[in-house]
Design a protein around this nucleic acid. Sequence first.
DNA 1: TATTGTTATACTCTATAACTATA
DNA 2: TATAGTTATAGAGTATAACAATA
Lengths: 138, 138
Amino acid sequence: MKNPLQSYPGYLLRRAAVSRLAQLEKRLEPLGLGATEASILTLVHHNPDISQAECGRLLSIQRPNLNPIIRRLIERELVASSKGVGRALCLRLTDTGTALALQAITEFEAHEERIYAAVPEHLRADLIPLLMALWAPQ
Amino acid sequence: MKNPLQSYPGYLLRRAAVSRLAQLEKRLEPLGLGATEASILTLVHHNPDISQAECGRLLSIQRPNLNPIIRRLIERELVASSKGVGRALCLRLTDTGTALALQAITEFEAHEERIYAAVPEHLRADLIPLLMALWAPQ
DNA sequence: TATTGTTATACTCTATAACTATA
DNA sequence: TATAGTTATAGAGTATAACAATA
């Protein structure tokens, strides 16, 4: 039995993404973080006082879906919020949140290394621009 | 505001996969097919008398999840089933199913072309092996 | 017994509508 | 009014357990 879809780049792209995400989540599990939560911590770490809506835009998560995720991070005291302009909330990491974010970033970078290791050396420099081109155009 | 994850290949991989899948589903919508349904029709078209379980293995869909999808395709008279060995069912496309599968395959190939078009020419031959390498190793 | 099909169920992601609050 | 946060809800997709049917 043969899978004819394995010659389609779109199918392989999806399979690769699913497989690598699962691999990452396995590594993040000891930190008690999912990939989305780890992404948010990283984003807030790099952008103190970012709003919830801005987080959602940068991570392509819609506000109604992001809300309970952020609330859980606040409940866990990894993120703290203060009032911003309008109804906006400014998000910052707590000390615990910062410590966990740094661990998450370490895992992200190890993950990045694993992915690069799977790519033939002469193609590594092309990987990021290639994936951006596959994402961007529509 | 900057998204630090955009320098991680794993993040870009996921974004690209989601974006391209959405693009494909838009093209398949006029056929009344989702990407999964179109994949199954293509698979059965290339492997007449394939079983449901084998479909699931090749497409990485677990049997309990595949069951209602196949049943819907049978209800729509795109797929017909006959008894195989054990409890297995042999799946085949009906004439309507074959006609629709051919249209779906045309859409898959157009999709493939769009993806290749986004890739710099000197990297096109590397695309499939690259994505397979990103999928496979773990 | 091993494999397949089936049912039930639960959890996560995602999508939309509608509401409240504030510059 | 426009933007942000919030709530409710519905639909995919995915995961596990358990049962039925058949070689």
